[in-house]
Computed example of a mutant assay.
Amino acid sequence: MADFSRIVTAMGWPLAIILAWLAGELLHRWTRLPRISMYGLVGFLMAQVMPDSFASGASSTVTLLANLAFGLILFEFGYRINLHWLRINPWIAVSGLAESAATFGVVYLISHLTQMPPLTSLLLASLAMSTSPAGVLRVINETDSAGQVTERVLHLVAINCVLALFVFKVVVGFWVFQTSGSLPQAVSHSLIELGGAALLGGLLGWLVPALLRQLGALARDGTLAFAMGVMLLVLLAHALDVSPVLATLTFGLAARHSRVMLSRTERNFGAIGELLAVLLFVFAASALEWERVLAGAALGAVLVLARFLVKAGMVMLFARAGGITWRKGLLTGVALAPMSVFVTLLLEQTRYVGIVLVDELAALAAMTLLLEVLGPVLTQRALIWARETPEEEEA
Rank of each mutant, 00 (worst) to 15 (best):
S111A: 15
V208P: 10
W85G: 10
G57K: 01
T265L: 08
P14F: 09
G333K: 15
A363Y: 12
S111K: 12
N141T: 14
F168T: 01
R351Q: 14
M261G: 01
L361F: 05
V278T: 08
L15A: 15
S5T: 13
E151P: 05
D221Y: 09
W13F: 04
L345G: 13
L68N: 06
A23F: 01
R29L: 11
P376N: 07
K169Y: 12
L41S: 09
P376L: 02
A271L: 11
A365I: 09
L303T: 00
T31S: 15
V315K: 11
A301R: 00
W85C: 05
R381V: 10
I110G: 10
L41R: 08
A271C: 08
L288M: 04
R264S: 09
L86G: 11
S100Q: 06
E372F: 12
S53Y: 03
W13S: 02
T114I: 03
S56Y: 07
G201F: 03
M339A: 13
V107T: 02
P390S: 07
L211P: 09
I324T: 13
M129K: 15
F177H: 02
F269T: 00
L200S: 06
F168N: 04
A254S: 13
V293K: 05
A237L: 02
A101H: 13
L378W: 11
T61C: 03
L199G: 01
A23V: 09
R320V: 10
A58K: 08
L124Q: 15
M339Y: 12
F4H: 15
R152F: 07
L303W: 10
P338E: 14
L246H: 06
M50S: 06
P338G: 14
L253Q: 01
R152L: 08
V153I: 11
T265G: 05
L361G: 05
V62K: 03
W85T: 10
F4V: 15
V171P: 00
L336Q: 02
M38C: 07
F251T: 01
L137S: 14
M231E: 03
A366T: 04
E289Q: 02
L211R: 14
L124N: 14
P51Y: 06
W91V: 08
S95L: 10
G78I: 04
H84I: 09
A210D: 08
G43P: 08
A395N: 10
V187K: 02
L236P: 07
P209N: 14
L235F: 12
R87W: 07
F174Q: 00
R32H: 04
G12K: 02
M316S: 08
G181A: 06
A66C: 07
V278P: 03
V245D: 02
T150E: 10
A58R: 05
I192D: 12
A2H: 14
S60Y: 06
T63R: 03
A285I: 04
L113H: 12
T61G: 05
L370P: 08
S180Y: 01
V208W: 07
F168L: 07
R381G: 06
G71A: 01
G300M: 00
A362W: 14
P376R: 05
R213E: 09
Y352A: 11
G57A: 04
A297C: 02
S263P: 01
S263T: 02
L299E: 05
F226C: 00
L26I: 11
V282S: 03
L233C: 08
S5N: 14
G222P: 04
M50V: 01
R138N: 15
A295E: 06
S60Q: 11
N67C: 07
M314D: 04
